[in-house]
Design a protein around this nucleic acid. Sequence first.
DNA 1: ACAGATGTAAAACGATCGTTTTACATCTGT
DNA 2: ACAGATGTAAAACGATCGTTTTACATCTGT
Lengths: 177, 177
Amino acid sequence: MNMKTKLLTSAEQLFDQHGFMATSMDQLTKAAEMSSRTLYKHAGDKNGLIQAVLMERDRRFLQIIDVKSIDDLFEALQSWAETEGTRGCLFLRAYGETGGETPEIAKTVMAHKAAFHAQIAGILKTELGANDPNLELLTEQILILIEGSTAAAIYRGAEAFKSAHKAASALIAQAIK
Amino acid sequence: MNMKTKLLTSAEQLFDQHGFMATSMDQLTKAAEMSSRTLYKHAGDKNGLIQAVLMERDRRFLQIIDVKSIDDLFEALQSWAETEGTRGCLFLRAYGETGGETPEIAKTVMAHKAAFHAQIAGILKTELGANDPNLELLTEQILILIEGSTAAAIYRGAEAFKSAHKAASALIAQAIK
DNA sequence: ACAGATGTAAAACGATCGTTTTACATCTGT
DNA sequence: ACAGATGTAAAACGATCGTTTTACATCTGT
C-alpha cells in the first residue's frame, strides 16, 4: 500500500471513529506511520486531508451504490452498514463539525449528495420509466429513507435499513399499481 | 432572562451554527456575556455545558412533538425546521463529534432518541389501535422518515419534510386498508 | 447590618493544537 | 553516477485550548 493510500485509509478510520475535530494531526501521523512532514506534503493541511478522505469515500460509496434496482440499493447499503459500522453519514458529520463554513469541505459534501441523489433518480427512472409522474417525489422519498436509516442505525442498528427497504418497496408498488 | 437560561440559549446557538468542538469556551463566555468563572460555576466544564444544552433542547423538542396525530407531528417538525434552520439533528451531531466516547453526552443522546421513539409509538398506537400488527414496523419507518428529513433538509431544504409526510401517510393508509 | 452567594475582569496555568523548519538519509530514473 | 524526489526524526513556531486563580464588587435574605 502506497503512502497516500495508507494515509487516507487510516485517516478515514480515525475521523469516523472519533470525529474530525477531535482527531489531532499527531494521532493521524502516528496512525499513518509517517512523519508529519510527509503527511503535510501529501495532504496540504488538515482541511485538505479531510477533503481528500471525503473524496475517496465518495468514490467508494458511488461504486457501492452502482446497482440496477432499488432492492439491490438497500441490500448494498445494509451490508455496507453491517461491515463498516453505523456511525452516521461521514459527509454530513464533516459538514456539521465545520458548521458548513469551510468552503472546500462544504463543496465536497454537496457534490457527493448531488451525485447520491442523481444515482437514486437514475435507478428509479429505469425501474418506473422516464415519464412516471411520481419520479421526483419518489426519488426524494427514497433518499430520505436512506438518510434516515443511516442516522437511525446509529442507535437502532443496521436492521433499520430493513424497515426502510420495506417502506421503499411499498411506496414503489403503490406508484406502479 | 437569568444567567443559566442566557448561557444555554447562546451556547445552543453557537454549537448548532459552528459545531461543538469548533466553538471555544472563549466564544461561549462572550456570547453569554458573562465571565468564564461564572460559566464554569454553572456548567462545570465544556462537556457539562454540552450536556446541559442537549437536555434543554430535549425538553423543548419533546414539547414540540407532543401532538396527537402523525399529520400534526410532521407539520410541527417542518415548521420547527423552517424557523430554526436545517443543520441536522443536534443530538447526533454531538454524538458524532465525540465519537460516542463521552459517556455523559452519549447517555443524554440515547435517552433523547429513546423518548423520541416512544413518542412516535404512542401516537401510532392511538391512531391505529394498540394491537395493530404493523405497529412496531410503522413506528420505526416513521422514525426513519423523520431522521431522514432532518438530514436531507440540510441540503434539500425543509420541504424534505413534505415528501416524508406523504410517504408516512401512504404507509399508514396502507396499514389501515 | 452583615454574611454568604453571586458576579466581574484579568492574568495565569500547563497542555495541546496545526504547521514549519532543520539536518540528514535513502531511493529512483536517466 | 548522481541529481531530484521522497522519506525520517525531532525540535521549534506562535496560537489557542479548557480551566483555575486572584482580587475585588455587589446583591440578597435574615
